[in-house]
C-alpha cells in the first residue's frame, strides 16, 4: 500500500474565510478583520482504491475539506494533489474534473427538479463529450441506472417522483457517468432513513469493488464510518486530531476527543453502563481557544495544552495531535465503553 503513489494528497491544506463586518461598521466599532479558519493545516493521503473518512461534529471543517478536494474552493495555503498533479495552482483541466466527482448530502437539493432523470445523468457524459451518438448516450444512461439499482425506464421521470434513497441513487449514477476514479461523498446517507442508508452504503461498497474507486468520505456518524473506511481522520475545529487505520482507531482511540466522541454514542445494546458525556460545546472557529483547541473540554488538559498547539506525531500506527498522548499521560482517561467491551 505504501509503495503505490497516492491517488489523492492533501498537504498542509488550509482554507480561511473572511467573515469581517463591512468596513464602515468595523470602523465605527473599532474592530479588525475577522477570519474563520475552517480548515487549518491538515495533511493526509488516500491510496488508489481505498476509502479515507473524515469525522467530526458540525463546524469542524470536514465539508470544507470535501469542497477543497474537488476544487470547489481554492486553498488559502497548502496544496491538493490528484494523481500526482496539483489542483490548486491552476484551474483543474477538464480531464481532471472528469476523473473526480462529488455526491452531496441532500438528494432533494442536489438534483435539478425540472430535468428528467436521464437528462441529469447524461449531463456529465455530454459535458465531457464521452459518447458521440444519441443512441450511445441512451445506452450509457440505461447502464448507469441499472448499475445503481434503478430501472432504465426511471430515466423518463422527474426527481420528485422518487424517494430520498432513490434520489441518492440518481446522484450516484450521475457521479459515475463520467467514469470517475475518485469520489468525494459529503454525508451521503445523513438525510436518509436507516434502512435506506444500509442500501446506499452497500451499493457504494459494491461499486467501489467493481470499479476500483477511491473515496473521500465525510460523515459525522462513527458507526457508518467504521463500515466503509480504510483510514479515518478525526477533525476538530479545522484540524486533524487523529489519523489512523480504521480498525486501530476503534481498537485503540488515542486522542481524548476521539475517545469522548465514541463515548457519546448511545448504546444500542442497553448494557445499562454509565456514559460520561463530553462537557461543553464546540467553540467558535472564529475565536478558537489558545493552544490545543480541545483543551477547554479535555479532561487531560494542563498548562502546556493551553499554551502550545500540538502537532501531529506518530503514536503506534496512528498520527495524533495531543500533548498528553505524546507525554504518555493519556492513560488517565479511560477508554470508551465500546472499546472496553470489545477487549
Amino acid at each position: 500500500m505504501a509503495d503505490a503513489p497516492p491517488m489523492f494528497e492533501a498537504r498542509d491544506l488550509s482554507r480561511h474565510f473572511d467573515v469581517s463586518r463591512p468596513l464602515l461598521q468595523r470602523m465605527v466599532a473599532r474592530e479588525g478583520r475577522r477570519t474563520l479558519r475552517a480548515v487549518d493545516g491538515i495533511s493526509f493521503d488516500i491510496p488508489k482504491g481505498r476509502t479515507l473518512s473524515l469525522v467530526g461534529e458540525s463546524g469542524c471543517g470536514k465539508s470544507t475539506v470535501a469542497r477543497l478536494a474537488v476544487g470547489l474552493y481554492t486553498p488559502t495555503a497548502g496544496s491538493v494533489r490528484f494523481d500526482g498533479r496539483d489542483l490548486g495552482a491552476a484551474r483543474a483541466s477538464a480531464d481532471q474534473r472528469r476523473r473526480m466527482q462529488m455526491i452531496f448530502q441532500d438528494p432533494y437539493a442536489s438534483l435539478n427538479p425540472r430535468w428528467r432523470v436521464k437528462h441529469i445523468v447524461a449531463e456529465p457524459i455530454r459535458a465531457f463529450g464521452l459518447v458521440t451518438t444519441k443512441a450511445q448516450e441512451e445506452a450509457r444512461v440505461a447502464e448507469l441506472l441499472t448499475q445503481v439499482g434503478l430501472s432504465p425506464l426511471d430515466g423518463d421521470k422527474f426527481p420528485h417522483e422518487f424517494s430520498g434513497g432513490q434520489r441518492q441513487r440518481i446522484s450516484i449514477a450521475r457521479a459515475l457517468s463520467s467514469n470517475p476514479e475518485f469520489l468525494v461523498c459529503d454525508e451521503p446517507t445523513s438525510a436518509l432513513d436507516v434502512s435506506v442508508q444500509a442500501q446506499i452504503l452497500n451499493l457504494m461498497k459494491e461499486l467501489q469493488q467493481r470499479l476500483g474507486l477511491t473515496f473521500l468520505f465525510i460523515s459525522h456518524n462513527l458507526a457508518v464510518v467504521r463500515q466503509v473506511s480504510d483510514r479515518i481522520g478525526v477533525m476538530y475545529l479545522g484540524r486533524l486530531a487523529e489519523l489512523a487505520p480504521a480498525e486501530s482507531l476503534f481498537r485503540r482511540p488515542r486522542h481524548p476527543y476521539t475517545r469522548a466522541l465514541m463515548e457519546a454514542i448511545p448504546d444500542l445494546d442497553m448494557t445499562g453502563r454509565e456514559r460520561i458525556p463530553v462537557g461543553g460545546e464546540v467553540p467558535s472557529p472564529i475565536t478558537p481557544p489558545s493552544g490545543c483547541a480541545f483543551h477547554p473540554r479535555c479532561p487531560l488538559a494542563n498548562d502546556r495544552c493551553k499554551r502550545e498547539r500540538p502537532e501531529m506525531k506518530p503514536a503506534g500506527d496512528a498520527m495524533v495531535a495531543c500533548h498528553a498522548v505524546e507525554e504518555g499521560r493519556d492513560d488517565a482517561m479511560p477508554m470508551p465503553a465500546i472499546v472496553r467491551d470489545a477487549a
Partner: peptide, 9 residues
Amino acid sequence: SIPPLDRRV
C-alpha cells in the same frame, strides 16, 4: 440495518 459501532461487517 443499523450499522454496528462495535465491529465491521
